[in-house]
Design a protein around this nucleic acid. Sequence first.
DNA 1: CGTTAACTTGACGGCCCTCAAGAGAGGTGG
DNA 2: CCACCTCTCTTGAGGGCCGTCAAGTTAACG
Lengths: 241, 241
Amino acid sequence: MKGNIILNQLKVVCSLCSLRELCLPIGFGAEELQQLDVLTGSKRLVKRGEYLYRSGAKFSSIYAIRGGFFKTSVIHEDGREHVTGFHMMGDIMGLDAIATGSHACDAVALEYSEICELPFDKLSELSMAMPVLHQNLHRIMSREIAFDHEIMLMLGKMKAEERLAAFLLNLSQRFSARGYSAVSFQLRMTREEIGSYLGLKLETVSRIFSRFQEEGLIEVQKKLIELKDAPGLKRLIRGLS
Amino acid sequence: MKGNIILNQLKVVCSLCSLRELCLPIGFGAEELQQLDVLTGSKRLVKRGEYLYRSGAKFSSIYAIRGGFFKTSVIHEDGREHVTGFHMMGDIMGLDAIATGSHACDAVALEYSEICELPFDKLSELSMAMPVLHQNLHRIMSREIAFDHEIMLMLGKMKAEERLAAFLLNLSQRFSARGYSAVSFQLRMTREEIGSYLGLKLETVSRIFSRFQEEGLIEVQKKLIELKDAPGLKRLIRGLS
DNA sequence: CGTTAACTTGACGGCCCTCAAGAGAGGTGG
DNA sequence: CCACCTCTCTTGAGGGCCGTCAAGTTAACG
């Protein structure tokens, strides 16, 4: 009875904090749930433009996005910035810092966001007692590695048109997986940030959005995107020349 | 006494199999060492051109390179290949397969190589008993993520010259860290594979190697590279235009 | 209403890709 | 041992994609 109450509370906390990622295929016991509860204590709000962490900062926690939108980027010594990823509800950030013990990139909120801070030492400790937890941590890290390889292929082999088509389809799929519309969504980032992510200049991004619109593939109004012909976009990518 | 014998045996096995990576800062007890020994049982030889694993194959082990040289690559459906990494002694391969349970890329030996197969379920099991082991596993995965972000910056922001300079310096540093010469080494891969890795065509790679040689930065003789002016190469990269 | 950030569109140029030819190295069979 | 083939690398000529520079438009905000 009491176990059930805790269970329910935890379910809520979990789903809110995107700990679903970390403990997805599990039936928890009451005791384990209490332990997990300790972890989820520290929620945090991050305003638009605010840094969640900066490159060089000491690593102590990883972060689960409860809501909102982030970008991560590495800064080269000459001041140029390269965006390494966009992150939304359910994503986990900060995994690249485990190796060195300090963060290797910046994380900035692109809109008002809420995150769950997961102290890594507690997480490690807990995962000793709950094998599933650390299995899933492995899985999440592994997925990031595999995804990065996809991006490397994109940056290395695709043309501007293909990159943007792939980018839009990826966003669409991720929004869709989170219960939002797959065909209509707001871009949270600027053209420049998209360009930085894709290895293009902002003018190129703008030009190609316009071209896509002319061809009836999408509808663009500033940051509002509507996919009119997703299969057409997919076809663009197949045609790796 | 008996514990010491096992310890010494294990030290040898460890150092040979590059398990150093996984259990670096540890003093093992005899029992733990025996457990680890189970892991290191399966060595394997891989001939030049042979596949260690293929994309789509069921994931069961990760692989530590004991000696030799590998490339990993993803194949796009239209047949084009993108090289995602080059791997040498001490590197660990196959981490990107944990997420889905099947390999996401191909791994091919570029020369006669020897690897250590580490069954992942045994590794997981063991790491429950040996916290250090799974901490290090996290560290290795994290490092790969951070390194991939560096490569994304390279592919997205750098020009051909800078990419090749960075590539040569990275190779040099990795050879040096393994006790080989930092200024003179054999390329195990073709110009085409270098190009694929860096997002360039083989002709471009060849041309820029020639240009570097004219400028006195390196000496090239087919696959033999000699760095004549490493600081000069570094300066090339700083000049991100 | 003025200011600033973000976006769009055009003209031009450079970097790298494409196509092509030839040289050198390594392996195989006669 | 040499002829022959194949794979890899080098070097040249030309063209296209995208970056650079520039000007103008729109939207947001005090």
